[in-house]
Amino acid sequence: MAERDFIAVRIAVLTVSDTRSLEEDRSGDVLEGRIADAGHRLADRQIVRDERAAIAAQLRTWIADPEVDVVISTGGTGLTGRDVTVEAHRDVYEKEIDAFGTVFTHVSMAKIGTSAVQSRACGGVAGGTYLFALPGSPGACRDAWDEILVKQLDYRHKPCNFVEIMPRLDEHLRRK
Rank of each mutant, 00 (worst) to 15 (best):
V71C: 03
R45K: 15
W62M: 02
V16Y: 00
G76M: 03
H40D: 10
R26L: 12
E67T: 13
E32R: 15
T74N: 14
R49C: 04
D50R: 08
A57D: 15
E32T: 14
D69I: 02
R45C: 04
V48M: 04
D65G: 09
R52E: 15
V16A: 02
T15L: 03
V30T: 13
A64M: 04
E23S: 14
Q58T: 14
Q46D: 12
I63W: 12
V13C: 02
V9S: 09
H40L: 04
V70L: 05
D65N: 15
R34Y: 12
D25P: 09
A38K: 15
A36R: 15
D44I: 02
H40Y: 11
R52K: 15
V30H: 12
D37V: 04
G28H: 13
E23L: 11
E23M: 06
I11W: 10
L22T: 08
I35E: 10
T61V: 03
S27I: 01
L31H: 12
E51M: 00
R20E: 06
L31S: 10
D69P: 06
L14Y: 06
A53P: 01
E51C: 01
I47C: 03
A56S: 15
V70S: 10
T15S: 14
W62I: 06
S73C: 07
S73R: 07
I55K: 08
L14T: 13
S17D: 14
R20V: 01
D25M: 06
V48D: 04
G33R: 14
V71E: 03
T19F: 00
Q58N: 07
V70Y: 11
D50G: 00
L59T: 11
P66V: 07
R41L: 12
A57K: 12
G75F: 01
L59W: 12
S17Q: 12
E23R: 11
V30E: 14
L59R: 03
T61Y: 00
R34F: 09
W62H: 13
L42G: 04
D69E: 15
V48Y: 02
I47D: 08
T19W: 01
L59M: 08
T15C: 07
L22C: 03
V68Q: 03
I35H: 12
L31Y: 07
T19R: 13
A57W: 00
G28A: 10
D50M: 05
A53F: 01
V16K: 02
D37P: 02
H40N: 06
R34H: 13
A64T: 02
A53I: 04
S27C: 08
D18M: 09
R20G: 04
D29I: 00
S27P: 11
G75N: 09
E23D: 15
A64H: 07
D18V: 10
E67Y: 05
R26E: 05
V16H: 00
D18W: 02
D25F: 04
I55W: 02
G39T: 10
